[in-house]
Design a protein around this nucleic acid. Structure first.
Lengths: 153, 153
DNA sequence: TATTTTTAAGACAAAAGAGTCTCAAAAACC
DNA sequence: GGTTTTTGAGACTCTTTTGTCTTAAAAATA
């Protein structure tokens, strides 16, 4: 898989947050219910995003997590790097350590192109952009439901 | 990681085989030594390629494995599909089951493009092509050494 | 037939990824 | 101060991936 499950869950939760009233703390339990992700597992993942400064959290009643920056300033790349690290974008396709322009493997050039296309996708898609798209077309954030479920209280 | 370790090992071994005298059986032990891959692990991986009809094997003295088809007729895709399966090329980037044109996630369109670029790379690179490139420029197949080591007996 | 060389098959172990659970700490409110 | 609601931290389990090892089976050769 391109992205780990943790990373995908982190992305889905971040999209969820970008779709909420700005500045409001959202309980993780609420998100885990709506997104159909294990509460404890999601908590652990979002703790990573908090540690990386992408989210901030608040304990107690009316607590939860929220985006530090506006969703339009958060490219998917930020979340991917925080959870999966840079390996996807730096590693050789044949797993050879130190593979690079100066000492390439046979696949290096082609893979570099493909990797750029992945990098481009992650750097140039912001949370807000995908949320707008998702809302306009009622796209999916869970196996079964579209963005609309994210509004039903 | 894009490809599993098993898959990467399978690709490296297949490149090794494509670089050998055509039709000759090569002992797995010889390859595992040269490519610095665990013999038993490589054996298991190559058994998959044999089961898939990409390699054929022969037991006993002067036995080993060899490519069934000429290397110029074997795209990397064949090996990737045999070992990692089609998930990389069919799965939704957000891991949502059934995500597709009719019921897409917000990332679907962009990911479809990127995925096509991966598909293109794997379908349009043959073993022989990469071997030629690797030999011409003495590119790497192991952490430390280039194609040239594959000739020293 | 016995020995050697090789792949085949599968049990087993170690490490990483995914997921669960418990308890502590902070904040709100009674 | 005590109770409730929430995140934080960490132990723990389960599964998958990765890697090791042992034994069987096939082929060659003496």
């Amino acid at each position: 898989m391109l992205l780990s499950k943790s990373c995908v869950y982190g992305l889905r939760a971040s999209l969820f947050l970008a779709n909420q009233e700005k500045g409001k703390f959202i309980p993780i339990r609420h998100m885990s219910d709506k997104l159909e992700i294990s509460f404890h597992f999601l908590t652990k993942i979002l703790q990573q995003l908090t540690a990386e400064g992408i989210l901030e959290s608040f304990k107690g009643p009316n607590g939860g997590v929220r985006l530090v920056k506006d969703g339009r300033e958060v490219p998917l790349m930020d979340i991917v790097l925080a959870i999966d690290g840079p390996q996807l974008l730096t590693e050789c396709a044949l797993g050879l350590p130190g593979c690079g322009v100066q000492n390439p493997c046979p696949l290096h050039d082609k893979w570099a192109e493909t990797r750029d296309s992945i990098k481009d996708m992650l750097e140039n898609s912001t949370l807000t952009e995908l949320v707008h798209k998702g809302r306009a077309e009622n796209l999916r954030l869970t196996a079964e439901s579209g963005f609309d479920i994210l509004f039903n209280e």
